[in-house]
Design a protein around this nucleic acid. Structure first.
Length: 825
DNA sequence: GCGGATCAC
DNA sequence: TATGGTGATCCGC
């Protein structure tokens, strides 16, 4: 398998076929399509466009990388290969021996989530090919549409060519979020520590649940059928999931296999005690509660579980048993592309080496170790062994926050600066919500040729306000504008990002504690509670935003002083360390009882752990118990470390704002300490505990092959221990959370487990969530309302097109009142 | 620390 | 007419 045959199918030139633009039928529901025809339509719809030209350019770059790699490969001697082989072998054995098969990891994934929600709420759509998104971009499609090659991340106008009858429904994130909260409550019943990856996807560790479950009486494993007496007059088992299709795999939760007993009344179903049954039960409950189906994968680690969940999609599940043989068998024929972390480019590069399956990976490890970065080939090695994360790592702190926007061509400098300021306003508002401050400001620009560039500067001290951010961003933008002068920057996208956060938090004392929230009792989080802070926060919603005074920008700009980037020191916040010193944890008085948000019963405790267990039980459907009285645990705050906010997002911000900084459970870093000095600084990060057998501590979907992914030929040498991150980040990463189990705090609003034991920190998060809830209630019904009414199904989206453009034009209107000279000051 | 690239969703 | 937004990571400078 070592032929250095020509580069695959890409002719890179005259052929005019761009593999990177071709249909990605990796997704479920896309088997057996007429790829030929579909690709032809896709390519021809794009040909000649600036988008296409840029794609062609990128494709060429990738091909050049591959070419370089091919040359390198030719220079590798047999001796080098042998030596590498020996080393790889050793590592493989060590890795293999440290294999952990003791956990039962489940990956759950809702089927065609957004599309399914829309179909559920609009039966007319049931039999039609439909997609959620806009003429410019689709978020997802239903299975009917997938048969035409219509899929997520495809522009709607191309999808229309593939499927003229396609119905395109605009996104309604509030609704998806609401459904997401429902399913998360169910997740929490099986793993209070579950790890959400997005609104519709999560990893769960079922191990502990199953340990309990084995001794559960049948009553706890019995779940009622949602007896929805509709047309048929009988419990509409088959009506439960109106969304999915004929060929759904068999393990439909509501249609138990013949061995299962459905109680005579048809009112409930009893589930067994094994994993498969538990997962089936979970999917059953999801379907009962939401009328939507989920698929699941069960495996000893996250990597395999993720692949498994796709196997019997939609509405199915699949398990790889927890033994080495089963795992290795499963891996053998698995295409590398199916593995999370291996994308289009990596796939292509590997393919040029004749590697398409995980078995190939294993066979070529010696070669790969010589051609790829340490990080990359370690990851490859783990994949080839079927290894993955075996524990749910909770989130670390967020590392950056950004806002970006696409618009119609914008070439006038003053408009660009005006838009830039708007972005900074939005970003500052988000920063304020999370009480963060950062030192690095990055401006992102995409011109009309789709070329992307970013420009960054790092300030002497951390900032957070609109003016501070804009002062820096403006300089960056100004420089870019000047660089092309007298030409214009012809932009189609602008973004502002802030990073290098200092341990933030000079936030005002929290307005609302968790205790306060819970004691609202049956009024619930989303009804009638309007925290003080909301008015303030809401002001950045379009409707609420006060009309900007004409001179506003000017004033702010002027105040912002000149070149922040060139070393200008802010007078006020000049000591970054000072920020972390503030401990404003004005703790709310502890009452003696808490009100459960599920059963609304009074729980006699002040111990949130105890209280949390109660909620877990409620969520899992067990009768309310009254925990014994305990105390303490509510210690003073230990700073914001480990605090993770899942921002439920402002509607117009896009779906994945929600995802925040979830890193993938894939761990590209192994426990190995050896690395090659020739390879430059090794990025060992959390592994520098000196423990060679340390397990992975950190997850992340690492792009393993960046544009310099391939390596010089060399021979492995000694370890280098240099680090990249700043010391503060390093140490905070190493700071282990208080390790004991069962103390997870789950946000009662967003259902996401919080990586903290600090009540103040936890309260802070809940406040944010509450604010979000209220914001959604306050949002004008016209724009993404949370009302149950769907907007009328329109095949064509409003002519004006996305809010993006309206934002841009708004900026235009405002910006025109200022001259560029004023901005440049 | 910066900038380009890759990846996931 | 028309090809997204957010966050993270890696790697060579």
């Amino acid at each position: 398998m070592t032929s250095s045959h020509s580069m695959e199918s890409t002719s890179a030139d005259g052929g005019g076929f761009l593999s990177r633009m071709a249909l990605n039928d990796n997704k479920a529901g896309m088997e057996g399509l007429d790829r030929e025809r579909i690709n032809k339509i896709i390519i021809e719809s794009s040909k000649g466009s600036r988008f296409y030209e840029n794609e062609a350019k990128k494709e060429l770059q990738v091909n050049q990388r591959i070419e370089k790699m091919t040359l390198q490969r030719a220079q590798i001697t047999e001796q080098q290969l042998q030596k590498a082989h020996t080393q790889v072998e050793k590592m493989v054995n060590e890795l293999d021996m440290s294999r952990d098969l003791s956990r039962l990891i489940v990956h759950v994934d809702m089927d065609a989530f957004y599309a399914a929600v829309e179909m559920r709420d609009c039966p007319e759509l049931k039999d039609k090919p439909m997609a959620v998104g806009s003429m410019s971009m689709l978020s997802t499609s239903n299975y009917h549409a997938r048969k035409f090659g219509v899929r997520a991340a495809m522009p709607g106008f191309i999808a229309k060519k593939l499927c003229p009858n396609l119905v395109i429904v605009p996104c309604n994130f509030d609704k998806y979020r609401a459904v997401s909260n429902e399913i998360r409550k169910i997740f929490a019943a099986y793993d209070p520590n579950f790890m959400p990856m997005s609104l519709d996807e999560a990893y769960l560790d079922f191990t502990d649940h199953l340990e309990q479950r084995i001794s559960w009486p049948e009553s706890l494993r019995t779940h009622c059928l949602h007896t929805d007496i509709t047309e048929t007059g009988s419990p509409c088992v088959e009506n439960l999931s109106p969304l999915l299709f004929e060929d759904s795999p068999s393990s439909t939760p509501s249609l138990p296999p013949s061995g299962e007993k459905v109680e005579s009344g048809g009112g409930s179903e009893v589930f067994g005690t094994c994993v498969e049954e538990a997962v089936r039960e979970m999917r059953f409950r999801i379907e009962q509660k939401t009328t939507l189906t989920a698929s699941a994968g069960i495996a000893p680690n996250t990597m395999i579980a993720k692949v498994c969940s796709d196997k019997n999609k939609p509405n199915g599940q699949y398990r790889v048993p927890s033994n080495r043989e089963a795992v290795m068998d499963f891996i053998q024929t698995l295409p590398v592309r199916k593995v999370s972390g291996i994308g289009k480019v990596s796939e292509k590069m590997l393919s040029s080496l004749g590697i398409t399956t995980c078995a190939h990976l294993g066979q070529q490890m010696a070669l790969l170790s010589l051609m790829f970065s340490e990080t990359a080939w370690h990851h490859f090695m783990r994949i080839s062994l079927g290894l993955g994360s075996t524990h749910m790592e909770r989130d670390g702190e967020r590392k950056s926050m950004s806002t970006e926007r696409t618009f119609r061509e914008m070439s006038v400098a003053e408009e660009q600066l005006s838009l830039c300021r708007e972005l900074c306003e939005d970003l500052a508002a988000d920063m304020k919500k999370e009480g963060l401050r950062g030192k690095t400001i990055t401006l992102k620009l995409k011109n009309v040729k789709f070329e992307v560039k970013s420009r960054a500067c790092t300030l002497p001290c951390a900032v957070a306000t609109t003016d501070e951010i804009f002062a820096a961003a403006k300089d960056l933008l100004k420089t870019e504008i000047e660089n092309v002068s007298p030409q214009q920057l012809q932009l189609r996208l602008m973004g502002v990002r802030i990073s290098t956060f200092v341990s933030a938090d000079d936030k005002k004392p929290q307005q609302k504690s968790i205790v306060g929230f819970l004691q609202q009792g049956s009024s619930g989080p989303s009804h009638g509670i309007v925290p003080n802070s909301v008015k303030e926060t809401a002001s950045h919603l379009p409707m609420e935003r006060p009309p900007p005074a004409g001179s506003h920008i000017l004033d702010e700009t002027d105040k912002g002083q000149g070149s922040v980037c060139s070393g200008f020191t802010q007078p006020a916040t000049d000591n970054p360390k000072k920020a972390s010193a503030s401990t404003s944890g004005a703790a709310a008085p502890d009452p003696e009882t808490l009100t459960c948000p599920v059963c609304f019963g009074e729980v006699r405790t002040t111990d949130l752990q105890v209280f949390n267990r109660h909620i877990d039980l409620c969520l899992s459907g067990v009768a309310t118990e009254t925990p014994t009285d305990t105390d303490s645990e509510s210690d003073g705050d230990g700073g914001p470390k480990g605090f993770t906010v899942i921002d439920e997002g402002v509607p117009e911000k896009g779906e994945d704002k929600e995802r925040q900084k979830r890193s993938n459970p894939e761990d590209a870093l192994s426990a190995f300490k050896t690395c090659d000095a020739l390879r430059g600084p090794s990025v060992t990060r959390a592994e520098d505990t000196g423990d060679p057998g340390a397990k992975e501590r950190r997850s992340g979907d690492k792009p393993l092959l960046d544009h310099h992914g391939s390596r010089r030929v060399h021979s492995p040498q000694r370890a280098s221990s240099s680090h990249r991150g700043d010391p503060a980040t390093q140490s905070s990463r190493l700071e282990a959370p208080p390790g004991h189990e069962g103390s997870t705090l789950i946000c009662p609003v967003c259902q996401v487990p919080q990586n903290t034991h600090d009540l103040t920190v936890f309260n802070h998060h809940v406040d944010l969530c509450l604010n979000q809830e209220v914001l959604h209630m306050l949002a004008p019904p016209s724009s993404s309302s949370s009302s149950t009414m769907r907007p009328p199904v329109t095949a064509k989206r409003g002519q004006g097109e996305s809010g993006v453009l309206s934002q841009a034009s708004k900026a235009k209107g405002r910006g025109s009142q200022n001259t560029i000279d004023k901005f440049f000051m």
